[in-house]
């Protein structure tokens, strides 16, 4: 029983990270129709930057926000330098561009930092808390809290602020949004910035538990996709639920089946979703940009 509880705790912890990545995907997809394959790299940028700063003696309370800002800037650059110049490009082109960008960022990470695996101490120390026979790392609470905060922030931002409503309007009909005076370019820019910032934040929070290195971005992206698909593309609530479910499935696979194949769980879920319920649990199918 306590074993199961332990698996559930670790499932929720990693699930919260996947949920944050999935929320980033959803934000960009909703605003622009682009599925951003470079989403996982933001997580790495956040984690690696924070790790480097902390190793250099910068206190966490400064290092964490700097890392998030760094990720956000890279997100803006990605949009300005790679996505926007492509214009109204066909789907294939956009897929190749975001993949290219993801590989480029992975290489840049290796060049700027190194090829080592990094971690730093949890924000509230690494002494595990005991909960009914299982242990929980204080950092797990940070991660789960962070994801919930991101979700709440997005819900507030998209529904209650002018800029957020601009993103939603751009998502539902770009031309109509432009006609009523919404700056759709700004909305796209903002969605890339936010989504990158969210990814970087996930990386900053997760690194003490999951570790990070320059090449984990793709795996993170894949998990984020799985979460997005499971929850239903375009639905923020779906992203949250999908992320947690993928995390739980993965933790249970690792615990009861084989830790070698825990990463396969996400892929099996993708395949099952595609075979059985392509619209996911809560959402609509990805529609091609026409």
């Amino acid at each position: 029983m306590s074993e199961l509880l332990q698996f559930l705790i670790s499932g929720v912890t990693v699930g919260a990270i996947y949920a944050a990545i999935a929320l980033g995907f959803t934000l960009i997809y909703n605003a622009s129709g682009v599925v951003n394959f470079a989403q996982g790299e933001f997580v790495v940028i956040g984690g690696m930057t924070a790790a480097a700063l902390i190793a250099a003696g910068v206190p966490v309370i400064l290092a964490a926000p700097i890392a998030v800002v760094a990720g956000t800037l890279v997100g803006i650059l990605l949009y300005r330098l790679a996505i926007r110049p492509a214009g109204q490009a066909p789907l294939v082109t956009l897929i190749i561009i975001t993949i290219g960008a993801s590989i480029f960022l992975r290489g840049a990470m290796q060049a700027v930092f190194d090829k080592q695996i990094h971690r730093y101490d949890g924000f509230s120390g690494d002494a595990p808390l005991r909960v009914g026979g299982a242990t929980i790392l204080p950092q797990s609470l940070w991660i789960v809290g962070g994801s919930i905060a991101v979700f709440a922030f997005l819900a507030w931002f998209l529904n209650r602020t002018r800029a957020g409503r601009g993103i939603k309007a751009t998502a539902s009909n770009r031309m109509a949004a432009a006609l009523v005076g919404i700056n759709t370019g700004r909305a796209m820019n903002l969605s890339f910035a936010l989504s990158a910032g969210i990814g970087a934040l996930a990386g900053v929070l997760a690194t003490p538990v999951t570790f990070t290195s320059y090449d984990v971005g793709v795996l993170m992206a894949l998990k984020g996709f799985s979460a997005t698909m499971l929850g239903g593309v375009g639905s923020p609530l779906g992203a949250l639920a999908g992320g947690l479910l993928i995390g739980l499935i993965e933790a249970l696979t690792a615990g009861y089946i084989s830790s070698d194949y825990k990463d396969a769980a996400a892929f099996i879920v993708i395949l099952l979703v595609l075979f059985l319920r392509p619209q996911g649990l809560f959402g609509a199918r990805i529609v091609e940009r026409v």
Binding site: P85, G100, A101, I103, F104, R106, A108, Q110
Partner: peptide
Amino acid sequence: EHMVLGGIMVLTMI
């Protein structure tokens, strides 16, 4: 290698 490959993909597409 990564930067070169990724850079080629993005630049060729643009």
